[in-house]
Amino acid sequence: MKRLLEYVGFEPERLYVKWISGSEGQKFADTATEITENIKKLGPNKKMRDAQ
């Protein structure tokens, strides 16, 4: 799915698929922080936003 979305023109840095178990609190927090930082660098997504 990630590959397909990249193919139709989404930025790869916006797309994450990660397996995190319920017991891995730190991994969850780290991942969320990492995603947020990367997305902030990219700015708002323009793709598929024309309906709003």
Binding site: M1, L4, L5, V8, K47, M48, R49, D50, A51
Partner: peptide
């Protein structure tokens, strides 16, 4: 998943169907 004929709805249709 709307039937509306906007760019993003069309895009959602094609991506979904492909997958």
């Amino acid at each position: 998943l709307a039937k509306g004929k906007t760019l993003s709805d069309n895009e959602a249709f094609h991506i979904t169907r492909a997958f």
